[in-house]
């Protein structure tokens, strides 16, 4: 009886609901915090960014068209999927980010709780960010938050799982689609969260996760004219990226340092436009 061979996992990109190697064919090893080999991951290229944005653009109208209640249900389902793989996530955090087992488990639990927290916001955010306006005339006048569209996220590469969940999920709560560039200490956890979207009823293409170099992919994402919002929390130097984004009037959230609920609320507010609806008052 020979010894069983290792079945090693190659972590792939999540683009349009499929798990793909990079269009460029590149991959790179990820090491644990102590320098030992962890896994091979795909290293995304310029064209992967393009494909991901295209997929996100196609998925976004359907997501925003679903009822807020339904969107909450789907995000909650994502939390359920994460819960059933909490051990795997804790293991990745422990080895990848160099946490001890107990803090890693605590970080995963907090991250999943934050996902549930976001799921609860989908049908409440309109009431908080929108409102009825007093106008001088026989009209109802409402201001309503609507999604900007496709949000590019340069995701945090270190820190808590909660911070990563905030960056990935907050734009979804308000009806946007996400293209996230992830990497380093939190890269594997982010790819695993992306894998879960396939079993959580999230429409294909709504969440796209690209592992790779932030300094390579950040400028491409920022300059892409079809990206409507940009979260630069994970960027080392947000200034030049914000400048690139300004060329196509992309909404920029420069950096949210913390991962408290108040910080998450800042993210919820970041990627909405306001539309105003007038309606005559009935007799």
């Amino acid at each position: 009886m020979s010894e069983r061979l290792d079945v090693r996992k190659t972590y792939k990109l999540v683009i349009g609901g499929a798990f793909v190697r990079s269009e460029s064919g590149r991959s790179e090893p990820v090491t644990a915090a102590d320098g030992t080999f962890l896994a091979n991951v795909a290293r995304a290229s310029r064209k992967d960014v393009r494909d991901a944005v295209r997929a996100a653009r196609a998925a976004q109208p359907g997501w925003w068209g679903a009822s807020a209640y339904n969107r909450g249900q789907v995000l909650y389902r994502w939390a359920e999927m994460a819960e059933s793989r909490a051990g795997e996530l804790a293991d990745l955090l422990a080895r990848g980010a160099g946490l001890a087992p107990a803090p890693a488990r605590a970080s995963v639990a907090a991250g999943i709780d934050r996902l549930v927290w976001h799921a609860g916001w989908t049908d409440k955010v309109t009431s908080v960010l929108g409102g009825a306006n007093a106008v001088a005339g026989p009209y109802f006048n409402f201001s309503l938050p609507v999604p900007v569209g496709v949000v590019g996220v340069v995701a945090p590469c270190a820190g808590s799982l909660t911070g990563l969940v905030d960056a990935l999920v907050a734009p979804l709560v308000t009806g946007n689609a996400v293209v996230a560039v992830v990497g380093e200490r939190l890269g594997l956890a982010a790819l695993v969260l992306g894998e879960m979207t396939a079993t959580a009823d999230l429409p294909a293409g709504l969440v796209n996760v690209l592992s790779g170099r932030r300094e390579e992919l950040g400028p491409i994402l920022a300059a892409h004219e079809d990206v409507d919002g940009l979260d630069l929390t994970g960027a080392d130097d947000p200034g030049p990226l914000a400048e690139l984004a300004s060329q196509s009037i992309t909404r920029v959230l420069a950096r949210v340092a913390g991962d408290e609920p108040a910080d998450a609320l800042r993210r919820l507010r970041a990627f909405v436009d306001t539309t105003t609806v007038w309606h005559t008052v009935g007799a």
């Binding site: 393009r50 300059a223 892409h224 079809d226 196509s248």
Partner: peptide
Amino acid sequence: TGAYSRPEN
């Protein structure tokens, strides 16, 4: 331009 364009243009 070097930046990906959008269909809405």
